[in-house]
Design a protein around this nucleic acid. Structure first.
Lengths: 246, 246
DNA sequence: TAGTGGTCTAGACCACATT
DNA sequence: ATGTGGTCTAGACCACTAC
């Protein structure tokens, strides 16, 4: 089922279970494993790759979490092959657009320090009226308006951001470069009609349907480092999610 | 940190790691563990509860997957306590509404066998024109229209559904009762303006913003058993998601 | 009955962050 | 230097499904 030449690299810093997960995923992508096919069972994988069963199980669990396979006791591990390819991780819109070849560009509309509103301080776990950094951007794809993005961040996180870098890359990439790693995000996705000013910025008619998203993102230490409300053109953007029953 | 009286029940069919995860989660809910607090470390939990370290780790992993805590090597496991409580699992709208006390009711508009369109047969992995069950419902909360729901299912799955049961409970609950377990779902969430007929059914103005969702759901065996497109009033419904970096 | 995945143990060694 | 979580092993026994 997997490339018969393939073997794990024990001197690599990449964990064995992850190497194995990638090999199995590649086999699925290549079509060596068709939808409905069973994966080789755990003990066979154990001897095939020379690792212990817990390591094999952890690799397969990765595929389960990604929604590629389903497991059932007494039956085996079977491949799902959906027609629609799945996405949506904890990544930035900019990176998503880049990846899909949509030539993203960014206009920074506002970048300044401000006093936190009640809502913002609550979301970020700050004192009322504490100073924060407020950011407003317009994101375009292929030169056409796609999203209006408002972000609020603690000064400690975003005090050093400058407009030039924000226009050249995504916010998450910049924060990551300064040592902040997004780990958990709470997100709310809905719809609303465009107000006049929003419509103008997004090049749609007033009243057009927009996708709305509000998000609070937490770092390595469980601390909120960003609160954001975004608006997307409903005719050009949607969220794709894969849900897995635990 | 956890209830000092608490101990695991080794004769219960509930796995030890899950019992432990629930105990830790309860401690967070109760506020014994405040946001930013560190959990007791793994080896201490091992001796406190008399289980092995892998079992402790698996329990904590459950909390990570739910977005309650964040782990960092050399630091520890720290609690996130968001202001907004998170939801969104692989559950039905009906159950969600029930749980939040919103008195859901359902009107079955269409329930009949039909030939699959290209899109539907593709999503369900059937032959073109194969017979399927088509279901259209209107869902109300507190007696007010909230959603228009269209579902397509293989006859083998939904051939026995009847209007009376569909008006009395959620689709997923009925399918579950007949042995079908949703395991993975691919979902796409967006926005669009209400057309005249949709507006009438949802009691909004034509052109009002609606949340759209299309979903394909897979069972225990990786087989698609449902394709659905739903429309929700944008002023009354949104999706809440917790994303966790893997 | 045979074969599958699910749970659990009791260690070992390592990488990383903090002090 | 210490303490944390991350990886990995080599078994054991159990529960479920299918034949």
């Amino acid at each position: 089922m997997a490339d018969p030449q393939f073997s794990l690299n024990r001197s690599s810093p990449v964990p064995l279970y992850h190497q194995l997960a990638e090999a199995l995923e590649a086999a699925i992508e290549r079509g060596d494993l068709a939808p409905g096919d069973r994966l080789t069972n755990e003990t066979a994988l154990t001897s095939r790759f020379g690792v212990s069963r817990p390591t094999v199980r952890r690799a397969i669990q990765e595929l389960v979490d990604k929604g590629f396979v389903v497991r059932k006791r007494g039956v085996g591990t079977q491949v799902i092959q959906p027609q629609v390819r799945r996405k949506m991780r904890l990544s930035s819109l900019y990176d998503d657009l880049l990846e899909s070849g949509q030539q993203p560009t960014t206009e920074v509309l506002v970048l300044r320090r401000d006093c936190a509103t009640d809502e913002v301080s609550r979301q970020l776990g700050l004192e009322k009226g504490e100073e924060i950094v407020r950011l407003e951007r317009r994101r375009l794809a292929h030169g056409r308006p796609l999203a209006l993005m408002r972000n609020w961040m603690p000064v400690a996180v975003a005090g050093d951001l400058d407009m030039a870098s924000l226009e050249g890359s995504g916010l998450y990439a910049l924060l990551r470069a300064s040592g902040i790693r997004p780990r958990v995000a709470d997100q709310r996705i809905g719809a609303k009609a465009a107000e006049a000013s929003e419509a103008a910025m997004l090049a749609v008619e007033p009243g057009a349907a927009l996708v709305t998203s509000t998000r609070t993102t937490y770092d390595d230490y469980g601390k909120a480092f960003e609160y954001a409300t975004h608006l997307y053109r409903g005719d050009a953007y949607w969220f794709e999610i894969t849900l897995v029953e635990r």
